[in-house]
Design a protein around this nucleic acid. Structure first.
Lengths: 150, 150
DNA sequence: CGTTAATCAGTAATAGTTACCATTATGGAT
DNA sequence: ATCCATAATGGTAACTATTACTGATTAACG
């Protein structure tokens, strides 16, 4: 009756490849990596294992805003930062602040269990070329829409 | 050449319905509401308008973790809390803390532009029945997977 | 009014993910 | 070592949320 995770080669390789990385790959990126070692693995298997492994607490599933899920080979309470330019996700060495939950609980009727925080910005590789361009694009949009009747 | 938003009945009704709510509906929920007044409106029109209206700053698009986008008729810097039980999203009267961005910037190579924080927990309606059940389910999963070989 | 670009309804297409199912393989029990 | 229940797999279909396309309609300016 006690169902537990079996150690299959697919599961082991997924875990190994994820362990090699300090980045936070998407399911598809993991699929491509694992496929080099197990060419016949199916994408569904990767998804299923990432789900099971994160349920078991062996890896962490990051459900970032608005984008596809990403996975973290290390578990622990730290925040993440996503690059607006290239989409990569890094750890932030800011330890999770549990006191925030209590502060929030005082302000609401909810029973608060957790919070997640996500930072956005430009990574070192994208700062120089893209930050200016990004700002200009946003300004253009606002100008077009806000500035009317002339 | 200056393209600006026209006032169509569809756009007006979407904005009106969104303004009536203090909740944060999904595109589909807005579609259902608007459809009562404009039965022939298309879901694509709702999506297009929510996108345009949020670009113009008239409403706010919330890209919450792992779920579909939600929309906020009021703009302003506050955090949101999502109910684990029923999925509803409420405002939290905790003003956004800009100092967090600076603290994070010191710890990273990124040029940090923003952060978002999302709280999770049980809303008043879901606290009593579901919090216990939710905890038990999670415990069951962990027991099944972690507890092995016995 | 007439013109024209913005917008529309309807529908097809897309991306990411999950579900299904017949077959295979793992791991505890024999 | 072999057996066997069932967890896991590969392949594929289905699904959900969202975006893109298209020809018809309409708001807003002159």
């Amino acid at each position: 009756m006690t169902e537990h995770l079996r150690e299959t080669s697919q599961r082991r390789v997924i875990l190994e490849e994820l362990g090699k990385l300090t980045s936070h790959p998407t399911a598809n990126e993991i699929y491509e990596l694992v496929r080099k070692r197990l060419p016949r693995i199916s994408l569904g298997t990767v998804y299923r294992n990432l789900e099971l492994l994160s349920q078991s607490g062996l890896i962490q599933k990051l459900e970032m805003a608005g984008t596809q899920k990403r996975f973290d080979g290390t578990i622990g309470n730290h925040y993440h930062i996503r690059c607006i330019g290239c989409g990569r996700v890094d750890d932030l060495r800011l330890p999770a602040m549990k006191s925030i939950d209590e502060a929030a609980a005082d302000l609401s009727d909810y029973e608060i269990l957790w919070h997640k925080m996500e930072f956005g910005g430009f990574c070192p590789d994208c700062i120089t070329p893209r930050s200016k361009r990004g700002e200009i694009e946003i300004l253009d949009i606002k100008k077009n829409i806000i500035g009317r009747k002339d």
